[in-house]
Design a protein around this nucleic acid. Structure first.
Lengths: 193, 193
DNA sequence: TGCCAATAACTATATACATAGTTAGTCTGT
DNA sequence: ACAGACTAACTATGTATATAGTTATTGGCA
């Protein structure tokens, strides 16, 4: 259910091809909801069949063409409805904490490696999100800048504020994971003298 | 890849039927890796076919029987190998932060509802985990108690320490989510002030 | 004796997702 | 004139998950 809405979130800003979406995804919504192009293309077709989108073939070079999608009024309504509908929380599936719960089965060195990898992973997430946060602040963020250009002045601050809020949350998550893994490293050291 | 190992984590303690596993799952590993019984039964069969488990039919009442699985040496090795293998981090898919990123599309009341639901969800997670933490401390945690009874004294503290560590992490996650959503509530109030 | 909750073990179906490969046209530089 | 990178849009396959049943037995209580 999330992917169609993540696509709508981008397409309400401006019409795009599947390829465009795939590209912009990586640098914006994809931070919170990853999707490969092999999932995007069929989803766009389905959304067109459902009347949420309309696609038209536009020329590309002398012989080529590409299919550009734009949101229909029904699509815009569906997106708003989704935004006003409470979220269903999925049951936890957290491989890192799963392994952590049985870490006494790992060799001490492997345990350290796990925790270091956890720190490294979330550090790189953190760096990415801090970078995005900076781009939000100074308006160099690709999709957001495009978005704000289509937004009435009085709503711009709102839009920007919720983006900032989102990335603040992601940053807090990453920091919590890093702190936890560091505590884990100290624990492994203590347990192995 | 996680489910078979989550099952092994329980089965290395003592042989169990699919039904037993399903039950114990809910109260232990299921906290970090949920699985419905409809996934557990076929997975057990597959693991038996792969030689990780062996099952035997044991009588249950006058006419009934049930299939009890125990871990083979190969299964024990596979579990250890998994515990020593680095984790592959999956790309983010976080519906709550996805919605948060576009919260300006929601009615102010719906936005508040989202954030309140987020707080409520993670508060109940928090309560559950604090409860489990208490059970870890005083030895009333079902699977852990069973586990410790089969563990040499010198390793018991290690086992208990990693469980504590895991739930500390989950508690920190929940607290971070709650704090984030509360910041969100203040933001919504300010923007619609 | 009959009812009911719990135990036990599935089956069936529809998505969702990961991973990998395919086909074809365009644009840029040498 | 051609190579190579990029744009564009898929297809194919296998596994994972969610959701919702089904069938049968047991053990305890009224």
């Amino acid at each position: 259910m999330s992917l169609p809405n993540a696509l709508l979130a981008l397409l309400v800003v401006e019409p795009m091809t599947g390829y465009d979406l795939h590209k912009h995804f990586e640098a914006s919504v994809g931070h919170v909801w990853h999707a490969p192009d092999s999932q995007i293309y069929p989803t766009l077709k389905r959304m067109e069949a459902e009347g949420l989108l309309e696609g038209e073939d536009i020329p590309w070079g002398p012989r080529g063409k590409k299919r550009q999608y734009h949101v229909t009024p029904a699509g815009r309504e569906a997106f708003k409805t989704w935004m006003n509908t409470p979220l269903e929380y999925a049951r936890t599936r957290d491989p890192a904490h799963l392994k952590a719960a049985y870490l006494e089965w790992a060799e001490p060195d492997a345990a350290r490696e796990h925790l270091l990898a956890h720190i490294e992973h979330h550090s790189s997430m953190l760096a990415q999100w801090q970078q995005t946060m900076k781009e939000i602040e100074d308006g160099t963020s690709g999709m957001l800048a495009r978005r704000l250009a289509h937004t009435p002045k009085k709503d711009q601050e709102k839009t920007r504020a919720f983006k900032r809020f989102t990335y603040e949350g992601l940053i807090a998550q990453a920091e919590a994971e890093i702190a936890w893994a560091q505590r884990g490293l100290r624990l492994v050291d203590k347990l192995n003298g």
